[in-house]
């Protein structure tokens, strides 16, 4: 049985994610590379252990599930960091117009 080419697997995962993420790809790239490299390592580990007869089917599924959940956790952080950045941008914009608006309206609106 031919071995799995993990590097090719990771490249394919990255390409698929790149297509889905579109313009968000540059900010997600580093996180995705780390997350998919770890899924690739998990698959490589499972393959090695199975070849040695040390990895029953259920255990293999559980190892992969753990790695998938870890990758989701990492990507959720990326999503959160994006929200923090958007929030900071809106607040910076509000701060810039604060004095002008308050002065013009004659009361503290912002």
């Amino acid at each position: 049985m031919a071995g799995i080419d993990v590097s090719e697997l990771v490249t394919n995962m990255l390409n698929a994610a790149k297509d889905v993420l579109g313009r968000k790809w540059p900010e997600a790239k580093d996180y995705a590379e780390t997350a998919f490299a770890q899924i690739g390592e998990a698959i490589s580990f499972i393959e090695t252990q199975r070849a040695l007869g040390k990895m029953p089917d259920e255990k293999a599924r559980l190892h992969l599930e753990i790695q998938k959940n870890t990758s989701k956790t990492v990507m959720l952080t990326l999503e959160g960091l994006g929200i923090v950045a958007v929030e900071a941008a809106i607040n910076a914009a509000l701060k810039v117009i604060k004095d002008t608006v308050n002065t013009a309206l004659g009361f503290v609106l912002i």
């Binding site: 770890q38 998990a42 753990i66 870890t70 959720l76 952080t77």
Partner: peptide, 17 residues
């Protein structure tokens, strides 16, 4: 080792946010 890496990565991600 892979279990350790996974739990450490998860905790790091949660704390980073």
């Amino acid at each position: 080792p892979p279990l350790r890496t996974a739990f450490n990565e998860s905790c790091t991600a949660i704390l980073k946010l």
